[in-house]
Design a protein around this nucleic acid. Structure first.
Lengths: 211, 211
DNA sequence: ACGGAGAGTGAGCAAGCGCTTAGCCGCCTC
DNA sequence: GAGGCGGCTAAGCGCTTGCTCACTCTCCGT
């Protein structure tokens, strides 16, 4: 039972705090392989060799290939949720909190687009029990964004006829960043985050355009 | 060289016009299997048995499993592009054309969410040459939306600081529908299409909110 | 010095994969 | 009605997959 210093928002590899060094290398290798080819197209031999070990070494640290995906998916979803909950619970107007949520959520998806791609698009490969666990976290992410929008509507500063649909749309925008974002591309995570925060403010009818 | 009556916008199964009956059943079976489990997790035995044939029968109509995905991906991308090009080339103000584009594009992704899921999320499994071909169609889709937005900016009716980024965002919104839409869910394709058309109009700073 | 534990390896197993082959069957043509 | 041909199947080939096993090495407490 050590004290574990959690690194929930960092900019570097999000797997720096995994305890045995070999296990960390395995997770990192799996993230990259899953993101490139998808879970089912990735072989355990590929993961092991990216981590610099023999195929059998994987099974010292993880019982199955699926357990690796579960670890990635669970931790990733929890970090993503933490980002949104921090924005929801912060001080400030609904518009400020919504902009903060979108900006930081998008930035996370862009900065960690490799991890985020696995988190957002490979959860269908999880075992049923693990899948259900992850779905529960996703419901909470939806709830976090929706409650910010509801606050704005109640305060009369947002104009949103369909709160549920607009929440889904805002989350869509953010999540899809993991699909297309490329670190060598035209724009930085910060730029995309700022742009998308403005777009979502416009979507909810808060001022985001005219100065 | 027959005249082929193309069904580019239909509401039913989008594979009604594939010529040998067995081939059509195979494509339809493959679409459902790929959408449910993903390309790599789907076996040729599964596709064949869904189509009511023995595993070997698949290879009478398609050379490989990948060729099935290619057929689905190519036709699907071309239909999606056709929808956007029709909206781009139609008469009407930029706002009307953009709303039309988003509304019909979203409706297609919702109505055919099974096909759309394969089209949008399984293209990474294509062989390199086929992949390149499909990427070219995707660039054209992006171009179609961008040109509508550019028209609106030039006409002074849209307020869009970052045309390229806003185009990506609008397309993200539409494409992501294929990921979450569920036919048994709360909203119909028409409702989502209308909602999203309004949201995108707000994103580009055209009137979409205040009456 | 030494025994035990844990990390790691090379070889390999059973199962399942994409795909092929040999041959059957119904139908059209002459 | 003989011949051929396309659609289809049963059987199975060669290979890869996830995972296991018997074993070695290195480290550490006594």
């Amino acid at each position: 039972m050590d004290a574990e210093p959690k690194n929930t928002g960092g900019k570097a590899e999000p797997w720096g705090d995994i305890t045995p060094d070999a296990a960390r290398r395995l997770v990192s290798a799996a993230v990259h392989a899953f993101a490139e080819r998808g879970y089912h197209a990735t072989t355990t031999r590929d993961i092991a060799s990216r981590a610099g070990m023999s195929p059998a070494a994987l099974y010292i640290h993880y019982k199955t290939k699926e357990e690796l995906l579960y670890q990635i998916s669970k931790v990733g979803h929890e970090r993503a949720l933490a980002i949104l909950e921090r924005a929801r619970d912060s001080a400030g107007s609904p518009a400020e909190r919504l902009a903060d949520a979108v900006r930081s959520f998008v930035r996370w998806h862009a900065e960690h687009h490799t991890t985020a791609r696995v988190v957002q698009y490979e959860l269908g490969a999880l075992a049923e029990e693990h899948h259900a666990e992850v779905i529960a976290v996703r419901k909470a992410t939806d709830g976090a964004v929706r409650s910010i929008i509801e606050d704005g509507v109640k305060a009369g500063v947002f104009d949103v006829p369909d709160v549920r649909g607009t929440t889904v749309a805002a989350l869509s925008l953010c999540i899809d960043v993991a699909r297309w974002f490329n670190a060598d591309g035209r724009s930085t995570p910060d730029e995309v985050g700022d742009l998308y925060a403005g777009l979502v403010l416009r979507m909810v009818g808060a001022d985001g355009g005219q100065p």
